[in-house]
Design a binder for these strands. Structure first.
Lengths: 220, 220
DNA sequence: TGTACATCAGTGAACGCGCGTTCACTGATGTAC
DNA sequence: TGTACATCAGTGAACGCGCGTTCACTGATGTAC
């Protein structure tokens, strides 16, 4: 079994070891959500995974190493969900109106990304912890930036394929959509149901059928 | 000196005591930003305020009591800033175009609310801690809801006064503006400069000159 | 396939440290005459 | 204004607990012949 750790060399790891690592990561997920990254003790994580503390230190240098591993996995998952949503649109019947296409996309997006309180709490914890700890800030920001760049490319394609364009600069449109999505997820932390109608309304408002090059162009 | 503690009876407190309380709250602000709410030790907070730990327990039942006090103060401050921004608009010269009016509002908003990394980190910490700890979740959510309701009323007035209307349902418009604002603040956590241009673009996109009742109405 | 040995992965006891919380105390502040 | 006393606010030592981390160990897994 080969595992890619950050940007370092591939490291060969036995299957047993990989499973232990995975179980620790999953257990950490739950404990982080409940206690916070700093509040989660190594003991609690190990107990949740049915290991002793020694096993933890045999697999991770310290807690931050585990946090970084989780951070990468979660960010990846999040952007995979967005990617899937977009590629799902490509297969939609072509006689669908844009309005219905967006509705479909919202359903897909909701389905392909976990939106339970626990997962969202944990993600927020990770993000905040990365912002706070200098050693995590840079690698995390870089990782998000890379994923986001891929996503932007895909959105650009999808929009072009649907014969649509944004009524404001591309970067701002992306930022606003991301903002609306994050806001909705944040509300779930306080018990609200996920509800992407605001994002849907935003998308419909900031897009329009593509105009010919001559007539296009709107300054904002 | 009289201090209003949550919804309980007003409590008479000596001036000396009030000052001690304040110094502890300010100190906690810095320590929370650096270490997180859970990671901040009572010792550190007291040291930053130049008190001993006994003084802390003489003023707060425990750490969560202090967190709740800070939470209320910060939420209040945040909505005060928005309020000020709105009332500042009322005094603007009436020959200003809507575009310039919004630009002014963004400048005001940036100026009336602290947007340094430390403060924003601390606020995010408080929010997340409130989401995580059951005893804080309800009171915090209720507090935010009350403040938000006031703010919505003010926005409604300001929009009406400017002869403007939203192109999508009021609640969604508010949600999107709040989302864009929060998103910008979140980016500051990772070293970005505050930049409300996306919020500005959003406002200009989701508003239009008020139409007469007969011609108005847009379903979204 | 069977045996003997080497390496690996996780165990669990032990350590010392820092934390939250308590409480007898003292110096500061306020009050009565 | 001055004195004597009462109350208040913060001090700092002490407690016991739980944490992160280490490490000698053992049982599990893999390898060579």
């Amino acid at each position: 079994v080969v595992v890619q750790v950050s940007e370092e060399q591939p490291v060969v790891v036995s299957r047993r070891r990989a499973q232990t690592r995975d179980r620790l990561l999953v257990a950490a997920t739950h404990v982080f959500a409940e206690r916070g990254v700093i509040g989660a003790s190594v003991e609690e994580i190990c107990e949740a995974a049915a290991f002793t503390r020694g096993a933890f230190y045999s697999n991770f240098a310290d807690k931050d190493a585990l946090v970084l591993a989780l951070l990468e996995a979660e960010t990846l998952q999040q952007f995979e969900a967005a990617k899937q949503t977009l590629s799902g649109l490509r297969d939609a019947p072509s006689d669908l109106g844009f309005d219905e296409l967006v509705t479909r996309a919202m359903v897909q997006l909701g389905a392909s990304s976990p939106s339970d309180r626990e997962t969202l709490l944990m993600r927020q914890e990770l993000m905040l912890h990365a912002a706070r700890v200098p050693a995590l800030r840079e690698p995390y920001a870089a990782f998000v930036e890379t994923s986001a760049r891929h996503l932007r490319g895909q959105i650009e394609e999808a929009v072009a394929a649907a014969d649509i364009e944004f009524v404001l600069p591309f970067e701002q449109a992306i930022e606003l959509m991301e903002a609306a999505y994050n806001f909705d997820q944040n509300r779930v932390l306080f018990g609200a149901e996920p509800d992407l109608t605001a994002l849907r309304a935003l998308i419909l408002t900031i897009t329009r059928p593509k105009q010919t090059p001559q007539t296009a162009q709107t300054a904002v």
